[in-house]
Design a protein around this nucleic acid. Structure first.
Lengths: 191, 191
DNA sequence: GACTCTCTTGTACATACGTACTAGTACAGG
DNA sequence: CCTGTACTAGTACGTATGTACAAGAGAGTC
């Protein structure tokens, strides 16, 4: 007896399983067998749909990159909405720092995704072919914060957020909301 | 013919080789054989001096942690010296941000070390026994910046620096010095 | 119904790994 | 000189891995 036929479904299931496995054990310890078990498919299916393990992992990371891009779009529009609502007054930085903090906390609440991102960063450190993907991820954030403020402030904010992500990955705990908000407020100086 | 006898030398060579290998390929891909080759010792020597691979890696990371602690001490004393020299005036933040930026750039110039640190962070994400070590690393910096300023500023500065480390690891490039300095200056608001 | 093409599933194989082990070698103390 | 201890060096073994492959099953076309 063979399973129901659904090639596209299997593709998706394999990619989703890969995302989970990578988030749990890291790129280097991700194996065909772990993915197959997680996806509920036989081992052979992995190499049928993706010629090599690297292709499978690359596909999963790329898919996560798309999700991250979507998140970034949402961040930008929410922050723009807040900007429009409140004008340019003194309270602006206060309000905006609040919104950004909440967005960060919301993102980090999805631990596997946050960990996957950090995992990608680290893997990019010694896997040159992952570097473009990781850089795109990094620069995407910097561009958003840059568009909302100016180049220098954008760099500062993005760097701070990257630090928050790193800390969250290491400790597994949520960042201190008020301290984070205060830090963002100090950086958010519109030129 | 056997090699010259120097047990302590071998221990050190093994730890040093482990640091290099981990920095290059990551914790998960570090193997006895790679370490032995790098250290120029036969395979059997690795398990003779360190019962398991994890012991060897843990030893190497701990040693690196000590080096990081020493670096932090140096950072603190240099920043304190700068503080003492310049008083509390308006130029203080300017001068201190300059000094800290240079310290960061200097640290990141030693790429293998910086990469090892980030490698540890990431590995800690899914290896609970590494978490204490990584946290100590993280908190060490935060304590130093906290002592130099105040708790909130310390958090903000340390987080920014962590972000800089992450970015440097991913891109392999030095951070933009002037933008980084400006960001530090904005955060360095003495209470 | 026969053919074919796509997909499924299980197994096989070469390789690399962690670690254990054996045999030998230098140097200490008697 | 002899003996035990600490170290060296090479090899062996069981396991897990990436990937290849063979045998089959479902669905569409004639």
């Amino acid at each position: 007896m063979t399973s129901s036929r659904d090639p596209e479904g299997r593709r998706r299931a394999l990619l989703a399983a890969t995302v989970e496995v990578v988030a749990e054990v890291g790129v280097a310890r991700t194996t065909h067998r772990a993915i197959a078990t997680r996806a509920g498919v036989p081992l052979g299916a992995t190499t049928y749909y993706f010629p090599t393990l690297n292709d499978l992992i690359a596909g999963a990371l790329e898919q996560s990159g798309d999700a991250w891009d979507a998140d970034l779009k949402r961040w930008e529009s929410e922050l723009r909405a807040a900007q429009a609502e409140i004008g340019e007054g003194d309270h602006a930085a206060r309000k905006l720092s609040d919104v950004l903090t909440q967005l960060i906390l919301g993102y980090l609440a999805d631990q596997p995704r946050a960990r996957l991102e950090c995992e990608l960063y680290l893997a990019a450190g010694h896997t040159p072919e992952l570097r473009p993907l990781a850089t795109r991820w990094l620069l995407g954030l910097r561009e958003v914060t840059g568009r909302l403020t100016d180049k220098n402030t954008g760099y500062a904010l993005a760097t701070l957020v990257d630090g928050v992500f790193l800390q969250a990955t290491v400790t597994g705990e949520a960042p201190p909301a008020e301290q984070l908000r205060a830090a963002i407020e100090r950086l958010w100086v519109t030129a």
